[in-house]
C-alpha cells in the first residue's frame, strides 16, 4: 500500500490557497485562484463548472501534470510530484486512449509492466480488474472491436490495475451517449463501494455530479475558483431512480444556482 493507515484522518487531497497561472502570449491566464479543498479518504468528489473554470486543471495539478504557482497542494501528505512517483493515483482521461496495438488485457497490463509487476501477478490483476469493470472474456479483443463505453471501462480497469488509492477521472463519460453513461455511472458507484477508493471526478453534467458524489465542488471561470461545496445528503447506496427523489432535485437545483451565480457577469 502506498499510504500508511495510521493517518486515516489526514486528507487525501489537501489544497490551501492553491493558485495556478499560465503565462501565455496574451498575458497571464489565472486558471485557478484561492482554491481551498480537503478531500477525505473514501470521498467521491465531483468538480463541476463551465469550461475554463479550472476543474480539469485542478485535477491535473493533483496528478502533478500541472504545477500550482501559489499555495500548497498535498496528496497523501506529499507533494503531487512525490505522490505521482509513488503511483498514488490512477488517472482516467476523457478519451479511453487504449493502444491500438495492444489487446484489452495488454492495455491493462501496460502500467503493470512499467511498474515492474511479475508476470503471474500481472495476469492475476488483469483478470481481477476485468471482472471489476464487467469485461470478462474481452481480454483478448483489440480496442477497435469494442464499443466506446466498453473501451472507457477498459481504461478504468487500466487505472485500477495497480491498486492506487485515488482514482482521478477527467470527464470520463463525456463522449458517451446518455444511456451508456447511466449504466457506467451505476457501475462506477458499485465499483467505488467495492473498492473504497477516493475518487475525484470532473464533469459538466449536473445529474451525473449529483448522482455520483458525496461532495460536489461547483466552480466558476475567470479566474477559476470554487464557488460552492455541497455535501450530498443522499445515501451511499443509490439506485438510478433516486434521481426522481425530492432530495436529488433539491441538490441539483443548488448546483444549478451555483453555476448560474458564477456565470452571471459574463453573459
Amino acid at each position: 500500500m502506498m499510504t500508511d493507515g495510521s493517518a486515516s484522518d489526514r486528507p487525501v487531497i489537501d489544497a490551501q490557497k492553491v493558485g495556478l497561472t499560465f503565462q501565455t502570449a496574451d498575458g497571464p491566464v489565472h486558471a485557478l485562484k484561492d482554491v481551498n479543498l480537503r478531500v477525505l479518504k473514501g470521498d467521491f468528489v465531483s468538480f463541476i463548472g463551465p469550461s475554463g473554470c479550472g476543474k480539469t486543471t485542478f485535477l491535473r495539478a493533483v496528478a502533478a501534470l500541472e504545477h500550482p504557482t501559489e499555495g500548497r497542494l498535498l496528496v497523501n501528505g506529499m507533494t503531487p510530484e512525490e505522490a505521482r512517483k509513488r503511483r498514488a493515483y490512477g488517472y482516467v482521461f476523457q478519451a479511453a486512449g487504449l493502444y491500438p496495438w495492444r489487446t484489452i488485457a495488454g492495455n491493462i497490463r501496460l502500467p503493470l509492466e512499467i511498474m515492474g509487476f511479475s508476470r503471474p501477478e500481472q495476469d492475476r490483476r488483469v483478470k481481477d480488474v476485468l471482472q471489476l469493470v464487467e469485461l470478462e472474456g474481452f481480454g483478448k479483443k483489440y480496442p477497435w472491436q469494442l464499443s466506446g463505453g466498453m473501451q472507457q471501462r477498459a481504461s478504468i480497469a487500466r487505472a485500477l490495475a495497480f491498486d492506487a488509492d485515488i482514482l482521478l477521472m477527467d470527464e470520463p463519460f463525456g463522449a458517451l451517449d446518455e444511456i451508456v453513461r447511466d449504466r457506467l455511472n451505476e457501475a462506477l458507484l458499485k465499483l467505488w463501494a467495492r473498492t473504497g477508493k477516493t475518487i475525484g471526478f470532473v464533469t459538466h453534467s449536473i445529474p451525473e455530479a449529483v448522482y455520483l458524489s458525496t461532495r460536489i465542488v461547483v466552480m466558476s471561470p475567470r479566474p477559476g475558483r470554487i464557488t460552492d461545496v455541497i455535501e450530498s445528503p443522499l445515501p451511499r447506496e443509490r439506485p438510478l431512480d433516486i434521481r426522481d427523489s425530492a432530495e436529488f432535485i433539491a441538490i441539483a437545483h443548488r448546483v444549478r444556482d451555483g453555476l448560474r451565480a458564477g456565470h452571471s457577469y459574463d453573459d
Binding site: A64, L65, R87, F93, M115
Partner: peptide, 25 residues
C-alpha cells in the same frame, strides 16, 4: 499529449515511453 500524460501518471521513464509507446506508434 494525453498518451504521454498517461505514461507520466505511471511515472514511466524515457526508455519505457520509447519502447512501449513511441516505437509501436
Amino acid at each position: 499529449a494525453m498518451q504521454l500524460d498517461l505514461l507520466r501518471t505511471y511515472n514511466a521513464g524515457r526508455g519505457q515511453t520509447f519502447w512501449k509507446l513511441r516505437l509501436p506508434a
